[in-house]
């Protein structure tokens, strides 16, 4: 029989270590990730204005600000505190880390939400991170860099010119499918067409077009939501989460 107090202490120590070192490593990761652009802005001799960065950041915040806050809130009940610091640094949470954690828990037959389940998912995420770092390093860092150096210039030019419509075409379909919200998708399509047309007629509007489209769609989607399934806050349970953002 395991003593309850002993168990409590052991888990307390685990929580303490992971939340302490989880935070420290995440802050160091944050510093590394910000150092790269800081170097380009301040030391590389490029002509980049700070005001321009604020403008770009403002435009981003208008588009993704809500998601910055909501994603950690969405994933916390699934991941648990300790894995939060792993997941938001390793990335690809919904398509890689969550399945890894679920498969690990199923393999050793523990339930998510239990303490055994939490340790199992921490180990699974460590395993997933190991594989991910190795494959990124070999196939992107080494092979990818070499591949780019041998690809003919006209192909590179095509990729550079048309990457945005290519990525967005696939991503928008993926987002629609994973969100399972056809109504929001139709609203987004209608709003986007109107916004793009206005930007075409009145060029200065183009600067705000993304933010306007996002805010208008979110507002309309809320007021035009299916009130039967998403009626009042009280009768909506958080049990059935969407497949999750593509983050």
């Amino acid at each position: 029989m395991i003593q309850a107090t002993e168990m409590h202490q052991a888990l307390g120590a685990f929580d303490k270590t992971t939340s302490r070192w989880g935070r420290i490593t995440m802050i160091i990761g944050l510093i590394f990730s910000l150092s790269a652009p800081a170097y380009l802005v301040f030391f590389a001799g490029l002509d980049i204005e700070i005001a321009g960065i604020f403008a770009a950041f403002g435009a981003l915040a208008a588009v993704f600000g809500v998601i910055w806050i909501v994603e950690p809130l969405t994933y916390f009940p699934i991941l648990g505190a300790s894995s939060m610091y792993q997941a938001f640094m390793i990335g690809n949470i919904s398509n890689k880390l969550l399945p890894a954690a679920m498969i690990a828990q199923a393999t050793i037959g523990v339930k998510p939400g239990t303490r055994k389940g939490e340790l199992s998912s921490v180990a699974a995420i460590c395993g997933a991170a190991t594989v991910h770092l190795i494959s990124l390093f070999i196939f992107v860092g080494l092979l990818g860099t070499w591949l780019v150096s041998v690809i003919p210039a006209d192909i590179i030019q095509t990729v550079q010119l048309y990457i945005l419509p290519t990525v967005m075409g696939a991503v928008v379909v993926q987002a629609i499918v994973s969100q399972k919200a056809p109504r929001a998708a139709i609203i987004a399509l209608a709003v986007s067409i109107i916004v793009v047309l206005i930007a075409k007629l009145y060029t200065p509007f183009g600067l705000f077009s993304t933010a306007v489209a996002v805010i208008a769609t979110a507002t309309l989607a809320w007021f035009l939501r299916d009130k039967k399934t998403l009626g009042t806050p009280e009768d909506t349970t958080n049990e059935e989460l969407p497949e999750g953002p593509v983050y």
Binding site: V63, F64, V66, I67, V70, E71, L73, T74, L164, P165, M168, G169, V171, V172, A175, I176, Q179, A181, A184, A185, I187, A188, L189, V191, S192, I193, V195, V196, A199, S209, T210, A213, V214, I215, A216, T217, A218, L220, A221, W222, R225, L230, G231, T232, P233, T236, N238, P242, P245, V246
Partner: peptide, 21 residues
């Protein structure tokens, strides 16, 4: 309910308007 509707709609809209643009 807001968490279910708003972020998803915002995300789809962002990708949609960038693509359509």
């Amino acid at each position: 309910a807001i968490m279910m509707v708003v972020p998803g709609a915002a995300m789809v809209a962002a990708f949609m308007v960038l693509g359509i643009g």
